[in-house]
């Protein structure tokens, strides 16, 4: 193996490509290769290739190989990679408007959220990245968030009072859990299995996919399929580089992306029942909690976050039914 093969590679840094030129893009993301996002990235690569007759290609760097999300964004800014799938959770630390997507119970199904990504307000949120020199191209969804509990069947938010729950360290998510009286903790993912097994935590905010791949069903008895939040990543690119691309190539990129995103949503939606069954078969009790139970928490969230920015307010107004 050698380091010598990068000469032939046209890295993204060579700007001003004319249409008709061969180009290999680099895309980085944080998930392992069995995750829907990686499959969507692969689909994006296939589409790029076929729509450009082999002229445009994609190299994928999965599983945080190139660093944390902060790194990936930085590398997109500097131009060493071309695309990143960056979670809205991370982006909301840089562009607070992305917190809008974490409105609890905003969307009943993945398809609904996927429709919402095409709306003007969603696009306005994307363009809030432009002042950072980043082009938010589109949203890509993973499975919705569910709640996993070790040995207490939570039926109402009141049951969550005092529970220690692992929640992604993102303010809107943690605020939602805090409003139920739970104590959210931002434990690193690799420690979660052991932490719930031994009782360091009583449960977690997760998606069905990771509950299966990380075998949390072995150590947690209850899975409440609340689908209370969506989990979008944002496909971002370097703005000036993207806008410097020939019109034709830009269209190929956005069309390919659209195809990959639709593919991911369709595939993941079809898996919902399968995942629930798989967890049941592995001894986890899968049940639902009515969104009505969370009325108080929803109102509290809407109120606090509507005050944070007019964009968030508009987003909540549009999608809260």
């Amino acid at each position: 193996a050698g380091c010598g093969n990068s000469k032939e590679k046209t890295t993204g840094s060579s700007s001003g490509n004319k249409s008709g030129e061969k180009q290999t893009f680099k895309l980085a993301h944080i998930t392992p290769t069995d995750h829907m996002w990686h499959k969507a990235a692969e689909k994006f690569g296939e589409e790029l290739k076929s729509r450009s007759d082999g002229r445009l290609e994609l190299e994928i760097y999965p599983a945080s190989q190139l660093g944390t999300e902060a790194d990936m964004v930085q590398q997109i800014e500097s131009g060493s990679i071309d695309f990143g799938l960056i979670t809205a959770a991370y982006l909301s630390a840089r562009a607070p408007e992305f917190a809008a997507w974490f409105m609890p119970y905003g969307f009943t199904t993945l398809e609904e959220a996927n429709e919402a990504r095409k709306s003007d307000i969603s696009k306005k949120i994307l363009s809030s990245l432009e002042e950072q020199g980043l082009k938010g191209l589109d949203y890509l969804f993973a499975g919705q968030r569910v709640m996993i509990f070790k040995d207490k069947q939570v039926k109402t938010p009141a049951d969550m009072n005092g529970l220690k729950l692992r929640v992604t360290p993102s303010p809107p998510m943690q605020d939602f859990y805090r409003s139920t009286g739970a104590a959210p903790e931002g434990l690193p993912l690799p420690e979660v299995y052991a932490a719930i097994q031994t009782g360091v935590i009583d449960g977690m905010d997760m998606d069905l996919d990771a509950t299966i791949t990380n075998k949390y069903y072995e150590v947690a008895k209850y899975g409440a399929v609340t689908n209370h939040m969506v989990w979008p990543s944002v496909v971002i690119a370097n703005q000036s580089k993207f806008e410097g691309m020939p019109e034709e190539d830009r269209k190929i990129v956005t069309d390919s992306l659209e195809a990959a995103i639709e593919f991911a949503v369709t595939t993941r939606s079809a898996q919902e029942e399968e995942f629930k069954n798989e967890l049941s078969e592995n001894g986890m009790e899968i049940y639902e909690i009515s969104p009505k139970e969370f009325k108080k928490q929803i109102d509290e969230f809407d109120q606090i976050y509507s005050e944070k920015s007019p964009l968030i307010k508009e987003f909540i107004k549009t999608y809260r039914k």
Partner: peptide, 27 residues
């Protein structure tokens, strides 16, 4: 040295951030 040899300054620009974030780990 490698980044200089391949002549990609965008990689050098991302290096400081990588120096920082490699340690961003609770473990």
């Amino acid at each position: 040295i490698y980044f200089v040899l391949v002549g990609d300054s965008s990689l050098l620009e991302s290096t400081p951030m990588r120096l920082y974030s490699g340690l961003e780990n609770f473990g």
